[in-house]
Amino acid sequence: MSGILLVDMLDAEAAAKARTVEAWRRERYEAVLAGAGEHLLDFAERVLRAPDSAWEVTRSGQQIDLSEIGQRVLALLANVERMLGGWGPLFDAGGIPAERWHGVRNRLRDTIVRFASSWPAPNPYGPEFTAALWRADFNFEDGERGRPLGEVREQLKARDSGGS
């Protein structure tokens, strides 16, 4: 066997070993991220039950500050909803299907809308506006951006004067 051939064989073997180690590392990395993703989803599922606990407290007859409890539960739900959105790359890297964590996030969004619209804390806007406010906030989170005020003003003027 020539020296050059032997060197080629050794290089090939080293490259194969490096590929195996890399694949092993990637696999382990993916497994760790998948585990972390599962923990986050479990946590989010538990947080979804927070409104039920809050309603139970109201039924128990205890003297509680409804505004304070409402604000805290809402903040918990909303912060976890945002956290799930922010951890999208982790779920992807862990091989967790997007439909799964989107599903949990959508349930959090529905729960937020329901809770914010129905909790008996002072809210002069009413349930319909509250639901619309939250949906608009989620749309913003998903990347929706508005139009400049000047354009909106012109459009409203045109509409009022019978234009477009």
Binding site: R135, A136, N139, E144, R145, G146, P148, V152, L156, D160
Partner: peptide, 17 residues
């Protein structure tokens, strides 16, 4: 610079002139 979301535009259209 204020940018108005579709919801904010909708809210405006519901106000009296």
């Amino acid at each position: 610079e204020p940018l108005l979301s579709p919801q904010a535009q909708h809210d405006l259209t519901r106000l009296p002139d």
